[in-house]
């Protein structure tokens, strides 16, 4: 019976979306948000009904309602984990890695020879499984947040480096000639022309790095952590078969990841408002 409800809800949600997407208002900003929202709510409702209908063991897949309950009840603990992993581990590493990559990129940019070497090597390093260094860093720097920050810093370093170096090269000969006719030296050219021109590239690297930072911080906690942190909670809750707690941490991680990415996109919009892709 419940399964029939689930099918009915799925059909209703889909029908509603077809109506909205084909309707006259389909390009209205509210409708653009409404359609994916309806899709998401439909999936959650069907999930809830199926879990109840088939009596799925909560050890395998908990119902959305019990995950929601966990989120409400365990608020303080989730906040502590968030603080340990995201604020201390991921953010610190992200800032360190970002500044280091930016510094190296600006230095390397002075030599065309180095730039030609760094671009392929950095691009290659960015594709490597750097998360694998997590056990090594935990051994070197201990199990607290410092080792997580180090893993994150190394992971975000290469994408940001490659994008910044590529961005700093992205000025046309005419623009550079114009600066020269103004009598601008290296630094004014860097700050007034090349850095602004590199901004879209730098933000691209920063946005790629947001997800990497969260992954690095959480995965590194699997190899040793104090008794707080999202990775720690995920692996211990698993041991206790408290899958709803694991899912609650996943929801927090997903929200944090989207918020982090969203924040970067917002800053990008404010800083590169002149770029064609933002207009």
């Amino acid at each position: 019976m419940i399964i029939l409800y689930a099918i009915a809800i799925w059909a209703a949600g889909w029908w509603l979306n077809v109506k909205l997407a084909k309707g006259a208002q389909s390009d209205h900003p509210i409708v653009k948000i409404l359609i994916p929202a309806i899709f998401g709510i439909t999936v959650i409702l069907v999930w809830e009904l199926l879990v109840r209908g088939f009596d799925v063991n909560p050890v395998i897949l908990p119902a959305p309602s019990s995950i929601g309950a966990r989120l409400l009840v365990e608020g303080p603990r989730l906040w502590a984990d968030f603080h340990q992993t995201i604020i201390k581990g991921a953010m610190t590493g992200y800032v360190i890695g970002g500044i280091a990559a930016f510094g190296v990129a600006v230095l390397a940019d002075r030599s065309d020879f180095l730039t030609r070497g760094i671009l392929p090597v950095g691009g290659f390093m960015a594709a490597l499984p750097i998360v694998g260094t997590a056990p090594i860093f935990v051994k070197w720097l201990g199990s607290d947040w410092e080792s997580k920050a180090a893993v994150v810093a190394v992971m975000v370093f290469f994408p940001i480096l490659v994008n910044t170096v590529a961005g700093l090269k992205d000025t046309s000969a005419m623009q550079r000639d114009l600066m020269r006719t103004y009598g601008a030296g290296y630094w004014p050219t860097l700050f007034k022309l090349r850095l602004p021109a590199a901004m879209p590239f730098i933000f691209n690297g920063l946005k790629i790095a947001t997800t990497l930072a969260l992954i690095g911080a959480i995965v590194a906690e699997f190899f040793g952590s104090p008794t707080v942190g999202m990775g720690f909670r995920i692996s211990t809750s698993f041991g206790q078969l408290a899958l709803d707690m694991v899912w609650a941490e996943i929801v927090v991680a997903a929200l944090a990841g989207s918020a982090f990415y969203g924040a970067m996109t917002l800053i990008e919009k404010r800083m590169t408002f002149w770029h064609p892709s933002q207009r």
């Binding site: 947001t210 997800t211 959480i218 995965v219 692996s235 694991v246 991680a253 997903a254 990841g257 990415y261």
Partner: peptide
């Protein structure tokens, strides 16, 4: 979904 650190759940 690209912004979600799903890789962290792989072991689970």
């Amino acid at each position: 979904s690209q912004t979600i650190p799903i890789l962290a759940l792989a072991p689970m």
